[in-house]
Each structure stands twice: as C-alpha cells, then as structure tokens.
C-alpha cells in the first residue's frame, strides 16, 4: 500500500487521505448515505403497498375517503383540498430551509434564525394537519385493522387500505416530528452562537438535507395515496 501512495501523482493523493475526495464534509457524506438507506425503507413500504394493491381486485377511492376539511359543515365534501394545503405547507417549509442554509453560507445569523423559525412553524403546521386528519379518520371508524370504507366499485374492502395508510403516513409523520426536533436544536445552537464560534454553519446544511428528504418522501406519499 505504501508504495502506491508514495509513488503518487495528484489523483492518487486525492484518495490517499488528508483530503476529501467528495469535496464535502464527512458528516454530510454520512447524512447522504443515511438518507439513501431511509429511502430504501420508505421504498420498501411503498412498493409493498403497490404489490398488495396490484394483487387486489378492488380498492377504495381516495376521493371518497379523504374528503373532509376542518370546520367544514357536515355533508360538505372537499376531496384533495386539505391534503393540497398540507403539501404546500411542506414545500414552503422546504424553501425556507434552503434559505436558512443559504444564509448560513453567508454567515448571516439573523437570516438563519428567521428561516429556521419559519421552517419549524411549517413543520408543526404539517404535523397539526396530519393529527387532525388521523383523528377525523379514526372517528369515521378507520384505524389499523378497521376499514369502514368500501371499494370504488361498491364491493367490500379489506383492512389493507387503512393498515398501509396509517403505517406509511405515520412513519412519515414520525420523520417530520424528528425533523422538527432537529430543527429546534439547530435553532437553539444558532441562537447560542455555537456556529459563529465554529466559523461555519455546516450543521444547518445537514439538518437541511434531512428536512428536504422528509419533503421528498411526502411528494411520493401524497401522490401514491391521495392521487393515484
């Protein structure tokens, strides 16, 4: 090994230690690999949902199931409206996260604080929406092992529908929750000048990667459960 490193050209040095071949910080590379493994977990969930759905003759119509809205009078159905609000909340909170990362590059503490607060508010708003929706579905009789909804063609439906819905949106909601906790920790660290002392805001970037991943997963969950 030593002979190869000593007889080195410039390319050999790049991988010979002391220099990051990927030109990013170690923690960020590891965050990427963690997110990749998490993508496989979510992928396994969503693909098993797809497999079960493909192996069943009937499936409930999402527009007949997810059609309620907070404070809407009884009997008023608004399919897709509530979930589109949830989607936009998450997209906007992703944008404020990018702005926080950007402010971090410029060592702009004020900008980081402002955008992190907005991101946290977005995350909490999303979680509140999801809590309301779960509560509403539960009061309609839907839960793990209980499915009050019929298939789109009027035949009896199995509990696969609710089991997958609550498991996958629950797993995603748990990611949102942990993302909010991470963002709050980042905000506290920013406010206590931890990053100013370090001279860089790299931690904000890593929290940002995680937060964008949560948004990315919602793009898939939203499409697969509510639109398809």
């Amino acid at each position: 090994m030593s002979t190869t490193t000593t007889a080195s050209s410039n390319e050999a040095k790049l991988w010979g230690g002391g220099k990051s071949p990927f030109n990013v910080e170690y923690g960020k590379v590891m965050m990427w690999y963690f997110l990749m493994s998490d993508a496989f977990t979510f992928g396994a969930f969503l693909i098993s949902y797809g497999t079960v759905r493909f192996s069943t003759n009937g499936w409930p119509d999402p527009n007949a199931v997810f059609r309620s809205f907070p404070f809407a009078p009884e009997g008023v159905h608004a399919p897709l409206v509530f979930v589109s609000i949830m989607t936009f909340i998450l997209i906007i909170s992703s944008v404020t996260m990018v702005l926080a990362v950007h402010a971090g590059h410029n060592m702009d503490k004020k900008g980081v604080v402002r955008n992190m607060i907005l991101t946290i508010i977005g995350g909490i708003a999303f979680l509140s929406c999801q809590a309301w929706e779960w509560n509403h579905l539960f009061h309609e009789g839907a839960w793990w092992g209980m499915n009050p909804f019929l298939n789109a063609d009027g035949t009896a439906s199995s509990t696969n529908f609710t089991n997958f819905f609550f498991t996958i949106t629950g797993f995603h909601g748990f990611h949102v929750f942990s993302g909010v906790v991470i963002n709050i920790i980042m905000l506290i660290m920013t406010l206590t000048d931890k990053f100013e002392q370090r001279g860089h805001y790299n931690m904000i970037e890593k929290a940002g990667l995680y937060w964008h991943f949560v948004d990315l997963v919602w793009v898939f969950v939203f499409t697969i459960f509510y639109l398809l």
């Binding site: 309609e140 499915n147 009050p148 019929l150 063609d153 009027g154 035949t155």
Partner: peptide, 17 residues
C-alpha cells in the same frame, strides 16, 4: 356489492367486519 352507507360518517357501517 355491499349496500352503500346510509349515514354521513359511516359509523354503523360495518359490512366487512
């Protein structure tokens, strides 16, 4: 085909369970 639900919130509707 199962009889469609008669109520708004489908409380009594326990056709398949």
């Amino acid at each position: 085909k199962v009889a469609p639900k008669e109520e708004e919130h489908g409380e009594k509707h326990t056709s398949d369970e």
